[in-house]
């Protein structure tokens, strides 16, 4: 069991590293948010599930699984709130982007202040 746990933890740590490289390399806030949220969420969940495999079903493992479920629920929500907030505060997309339907609809009046 503990070998499976170690493998999962290693993969999770490597995904965390990829997410942070994306945070540094990608050009604008939305792309950084994508890369960082996806990679770090799955990476940390894999670390936690690996911890659960490593120790087996005892107090540590069960709490790790609860923590993983909590992160899976909340992390995308935080990313969504942040993307919406930064779009509404006027942060532009990267200049190489291919269209922004959300801003068009906001200027056209289809999207109102919260519905």
């Amino acid at each position: 069991m503990s070998e499976i746990g170690l493998v999962l933890i290693s993969v999770g740590v490597v995904f965390d590293l990829f997410g942070c490289i994306g945070l540094v390399r990608l050009p604008d806030i939305y792309n950084r948010l994508q890369a960082a949220t996806k990679c770090v969420t799955l990476g940390t969940c894999m670390i936690l599930i690996g911890v659960a495999f490593y120790t087996g079903l005892d107090a540590i493992g069960v709490k790790a699984i609860i923590c993983a479920v909590f992160i899976l629920l909340t992390s995308p929500t935080g990313a969504h709130a942040l993307a919406r907030g930064s779009h509404r505060s006027g942060v532009p997309l990267w200049e190489g982007s291919v269209g922004d339907k959300y801003r068009e609809d906001k200027e056209g009046g289809e999207v109102h202040e919260e519905a």
Partner: peptide, 29 residues
């Protein structure tokens, strides 16, 4: 400012992983 906020959020999630690994090493829940 949103860039800094993203980075802080991601840092918080990394600390969660860190704490889990510490939990294994120390053997405390």
């Amino acid at each position: 400012p949103p860039d800094r906020t993203v980075a802080i959020d991601i840092f918080g999630t990394l600390v969660v992983g860190f704490c889990a690994l510490l939990g294994i090493i120390e053997g405390r829940d």
